[in-house]
Computed example of a mutant assay.
Amino acid sequence: MIQFPNAKINLGLQLIEKRPDGFHNLVSCFYPVGWTDALEILPTTSEASFTLSGLSVPGEPTQNLCWKAYELLKKDYHLPAIQMHLHKVIPMGAGLGGGSADAAFTLKILNDLFTLSLPAEQLENYAKQLGSDCAFFVQNKPVLAIEKGDVFKPIDLDLKGWHVVLVYPNFPISTAEAYAGVLPQFPENSLKTLLAHEPTTWKDTVVNDFEASLFPKYPVLKELKGQLYAMGATYASMSGSGSTMYGLFKEAPAQPLPFTAEYSVWQGVL
């Protein structure tokens, strides 16, 4: 069975406060986009295996979130051996949730492949054990994420038909690095309220709080944001705590894009 784990973008990200456990409470809207990896899982009568292709993934295969997802379900449901192959396309440290998506899709494939009949809520509970935003990719629909980014509330937001351009500047930003420079504070306006207005208003109101500390450190990110607006983006922002910049366009942007020779670029329709 093969599926295609997809990325997500963050529409705004408010860092509210540091928690006693060392994490941060935040508010962000997670929105799925069509940049995908490819993940295949097959039962096997031989030894279980996990292989990789595409982008280089650091660490031992057994430390990959996909393999950890398999081990998590195997412990409770005595799953048979599998052959798993991940073709990695979504860049890492990019703020796109690619690794989290791979883990969640592993759970979903195993649920279908072995007819476990686990409901979405139970799959989300397993996914939360693997990473803060993993559970989002179980139902894979726009949500307002709160607390550590692992508690979801519904949001009435439909960007169907909008064009999105994602630009990864070919360097990652780790979660630890991103959080090291932040100063959390309670916002004047709730993100849900700000997103309820037309996207034409978001440029001046919907902010990713990581930009304040990361733009001075990585000026290219601010430059890319400016380029996206110069191309006609209605809204442009950093995604999550990673290095990807994205722009939302009401109409498809003019071709060719100015940064395809230097950076990794994906564009599509929401």
Results as ranks from 00 to 15, higher is better:
Met238Thr: 13
Phe259Asp: 07
Asn125Trp: 06
Lys225Ala: 10
Leu79Gln: 10
Val138His: 03
Asp150Gly: 14
His87Thr: 14
Leu248His: 07
Tyr246Gln: 12
Lys128Glu: 12
Gly97Pro: 06
Cys134Thr: 13
Gln267Lys: 10
Ile2Tyr: 09
Asp102Glu: 11
Phe4Pro: 11
Leu118Ile: 12
Pro32Tyr: 03
Ser53Glu: 01
Ala120Arg: 05
Val220Arg: 08
Lys148Asp: 05
Ser241Met: 15
Asn25Ile: 09
Phe4Ala: 14
Ala38Phe: 00
Leu73Thr: 01
Ala233Phe: 00
Gly59Glu: 04
Ser100Val: 01
Phe210Thr: 11
Gly34Asn: 13
Glu17Tyr: 11
Lys108Val: 04
Pro142Asn: 02
Thr45Asn: 13
Leu166Tyr: 09
Val143Pro: 00
Phe50Trp: 01
Met231Glu: 04
Phe186Trp: 10
Trp35Glu: 13
Gly232Trp: 10
Gly93Pro: 00
Leu159Arg: 02
Ser190Cys: 09
Asp204Tyr: 15
Ala120His: 08
Gly12Cys: 03
Leu191Thr: 07
Leu65Val: 04
Leu270Val: 05
Leu123Thr: 04
Asn111Lys: 06
Glu223Asp: 12
Val151Tyr: 09
Met1Thr: 07
Leu130Ser: 04
Trp67Asn: 07
Ala101Arg: 04
Val151Lys: 09
Ala38Leu: 03
Glu223Gln: 14
Leu73Phe: 02
Gly34His: 15
Gln255Pro: 05
Asn208Thr: 12
Pro91Val: 13
Gln255Ile: 03
Ser213Arg: 11
Lys88Met: 02
Glu198Gly: 07
Leu195Ile: 13
Lys222Ser: 14
Asn140Cys: 01
Leu116Ser: 06
Lys8Phe: 00
Tyr229Ser: 00
Pro256Phe: 14
Val167Ser: 09
Cys134Ala: 11
Tyr218Glu: 06
Leu221Arg: 00
Leu39His: 08
Tyr126Gly: 04
Ser46Thr: 15
Ile146Gly: 00
Val164Gly: 00
Val165Phe: 09
Glu60Tyr: 14
Gln63Asn: 15
Val27Met: 05
Asp37Trp: 06
Thr244Phe: 13
Leu157Glu: 12
Pro80Met: 09
Glu177Leu: 15
Lys108Ile: 02
Ser237Cys: 12
Leu221Lys: 04
Gln63Tyr: 07
Ser237Pro: 11
Pro91Tyr: 06
Ala178Ser: 12
Tyr218Ile: 05
Pro187Leu: 14
Ala135Tyr: 13
Tyr218Val: 05
Pro187Cys: 14
Leu15Cys: 02
Lys108Gly: 01
Lys148Val: 07
Gln3Ile: 05
Gln14Trp: 02
Trp202Cys: 13
Gly93Ile: 03
Val89Asp: 13
Asp204Phe: 10
Asn140Met: 01
Ala230Ser: 11
Asn64Lys: 05
Pro199Met: 10
Phe215Asp: 08
Ala180Ser: 15
Pro80Ser: 11
Thr193Ala: 14
Lys8Met: 00
Lys88Gln: 04
Gly93Ser: 01
Gln185Trp: 12
Thr205Pro: 03
Gly12Pro: 04
Ser56Tyr: 03
Asn170Thr: 11
Gly99Gln: 00
Leu118Trp: 04
Ser46Met: 11
Tyr70Val: 02
Leu26Arg: 03
Cys66Gln: 05
Glu40Cys: 11
Met1Ser: 12
Val167Tyr: 08
Leu270Gly: 02
Ile146Cys: 01
Ser237His: 10
Phe186Pro: 06
Leu15Met: 10
Lys8Thr: 03
Lys225Asn: 10
Ile9Trp: 02
Gly226Lys: 14
